[in-house]
Write a protein that binds this DNA or RNA. Structure first.
Lengths: 164, 164
DNA sequence: GCCAATTGCTTGAAACTTAAAGAAATCTGG
DNA sequence: CCAGATTTCTTTAAGTTTCAAGCAATTGGC
């Protein structure tokens, strides 16, 4: 009997429903929060989420970054960044210069106005996020951070093992 | 001294950096996994993620759903669904009928071919997800499920309290 | 120095996405 | 019954996004 059921268990395809449900829940959470942030950004500052995200990347590095850097950090395609940057330069939020060392490279930075506007938005944004996560205890937050770090590492490992 | 620093702590704006970092990590995880799934779907089945997601919704309800139902479940706009459905009907994956009870309503279902194709993709998809989350223990999975449920509830509460 | 490979970015096509406005059908309270 | 409100879906405009192809600049091997 015991042998039988063990044999069976090996032959049957494994159950992966839990992981799938976890993934769907993770996705739901993110979509929900992203939608909320998106609509607040639009209502309050008439800015789109991708623009805000791009400015957030640049705010962290005053001396500027290349388009490739931005692309990697935001995990979006190169062509995507090109278009976003074009519109943000147009609207005066970004400053763009060709590198003198390597003329393929474009270095972008926040303009003074762009930085001021971003800081204003970022301050409120932080409060929104705090409110959205408001029912989590500090312990919940720590625990989630830990588990998501583990998840990220696992996903990266899986992606690497497939890619090369 | 103690009094002083406590007074200061109350007067200073609260620290919400932890929640912000948590949100960024959550977003990173989701983006990472989503990108991985997206590229596997494209490579393996030449299908886009939104199409797969839409078919996944329909697979759960054989008798079909209205466009509004799909829109709510996928948390995307109505117009978005209209376009997606159009292309999937065109490619023979979906069947679309006007409700006889309410002629505003469109009921969509997977066609036989659409269902067969989805099932094939879904089986592999489940393995990918299991692999991506492969380094998490069953306990990690349970704990993440719990914390994400709490997060979702918190986010929904925050969204409701703003919206109405 | 030269040629091939690589890197950084842009372009183009197709698809996806949203918000807002509009059309059609239904519902509701007189 | 009927006018106004609501619901369901489509349309439109603007923007985002990806992928693939391509161009320009740089690097590395010889």
């Amino acid at each position: 009997m015991t042998l039988d059921s063990e044999t069976k268990a090996v032959e049957l395809p494994e159950h992966h429903g839990d992981e799938l449900r976890l993934w769907l829940r993770l996705l739901t959470c993110t979509t929900l929060i992203e939608g909320e942030v998106r609509s607040r950004l639009r209502e309050r500052f008439d800015v789109t989420l991708p623009r805000f995200d791009l400015m957030a990347q640049l705010d962290k590095v005053p001396e500027g970054m290349t388009l490739s850097d931005v692309s990697k950090r935001m995990m979006v395609s190169n062509g995507n960044v090109t278009g976003l940057v074009e519109r943000l330069v147009e609207s005066g939020h970004l400053d763009r210069r060709t590198s003198e060392v390597d003329r393929r490279v474009q270095v972008i930075r926040l303009t003074k106005a762009g930085r001021a506007e971003f800081r204003k938005m970022a301050a409120e944004h932080e409060l929104w996020i705090a409110d959205i996560f408001g029912d989590l205890t500090p312990k919940d937050v720590r625990e989630l951070m830990r588990l998501l770090a583990k998840t990220k590492a696992s996903a990266q490992k899986s992606a690497r093992s497939r890619g090369g």
